[in-house]
């Protein structure tokens, strides 16, 4: 295998997959960092977002990308609604109960998808797309657009968190919730805003995975482990950490086929998760340990 083949067959798919994991992992790391619990319904919310985009596309009969903003808005609303209905009243009880509630929500979201859209696999677009060559690197249009979309999301989110008033409030709550409250940050508003952003990120991750792969009712659940591995690998609470972690997990999964049978690709994320918890639980970029 030549070097360029290695890049094209392992690194390029790894970077694309990894950037999708990163979008999901950023949401995980925000919930983990700001609201301080592991959100197990994250993957199934991504499934929901992917299918909302599918229905939107069917409605307008246009490019699947029309579905992305619609799905992000709907998923943001769903996330805020879930928080108000199922998580909010557990606020003052041990956080692990919220984790449990989120497992229940995961099951509920998935069964809604199964009832409304069925259990069969589907895709946004049929047919085989031939990749174009850019200086020897083979990229399909959808892969290029995926990378662009992820870059836009990450840069936009970073700018929001660093420059805007609400972004700063969110970071303050992540660093020290009591101090943030004393400084006049309204926790309720920050919580709501966090859920809206997290929901939108979920939908984006689900949509991009569906675009590059296929849609089915279990897609998000299988996304959960790599997303958590990426978030913890990068450092809980660190957006840039989640991006780095996502890319590492994605590339590692694509490289794992060189030494492991293909069906164990999904095990790579689990191994990374256990290793990082063993040697450096704060993650590569020094995040939080709960």
């Amino acid at each position: 295998m030549t070097f360029i083949d290695f890049i094209n067959f392992h690194i390029v798919p790894g970077v694309v997959l990894g950037s999708i994991y990163a979008v999901g992992a950023i949401g995980i790391t925000m919930v983990f960092g700001i609201l301080r619990f592991a959100h197990l319904a994250h993957g199934d919310l991504a499934t929901m977002g992917a299918f909302i985009a599918l229905s939107t596309m069917g409605l307008f009969g246009a490019s699947p990308w029309v579905g992305l903003p619609v799905a992000m808005i709907f998923a943001a609303a769903i996330a805020v609604g879930i928080d108000k209905t199922f998580y909010d009243y557990l606020r003052d009880r041990p956080k692990i109960l919220t984790v449990m509630a989120s497992l229940g929500v995961a099951l509920m979201l998935r069964s809604v998808v199964q009832v409304v859209w069925g259990v069969d696999s589907t895709t946004y677009q049929r047919g085989i797309v031939r990749p174009d060559e850019y200086f020897g690197i083979l990229l399909r249009d959808r892969e290029l657009y995926t990378l662009l979309a992820v870059a836009t999301i990450v840069i936009g989110l970073e700018a929001f968190l660093r420059k805007s008033k609400w972004g700063k409030a969110m970071r303050a709550m992540s660093d020290n919730p009591d101090l943030a409250r004393l400084s006049g940050v309204d926790n309720r508003h920050v919580t709501m805003l966090t859920w809206a952003i997290v929901g939108a990120l979920c939908a984006a991750a689900g949509f991009l995975l569906g675009l590059n792969n296929e849609l089915n009712s279990m897609m998000g659940w299988h996304l959960l482990l790599p997303m958590f591995a990426a978030a913890i690998l990068g450092g809980v609470g660190r957006v840039e950490g989640a991006l780095l972690g996502g890319l590492i997990v994605g590339i590692a999964e694509e490289l794992s086929v060189l030494i492991l049978p293909g069906q164990y690709k999904a095990a790579t994320a689990f191994v990374i998760l256990l290793l990082i918890l063993l040697v450096r639980p704060r993650g590569l970029l020094n995040g939080k340990v709960l």
Binding site: F32, F37, A38, L40, K95, I96, V99, L103, L224, L225, F228, I232, A269, F270, L273, L274, L277, L290
Partner: peptide
């Protein structure tokens, strides 16, 4: 915290 155990046992 038990959150990590939850994820690892799913895995």
């Amino acid at each position: 915290r038990s959150d990590y155990l939850a994820i690892a046992t799913i895995g």
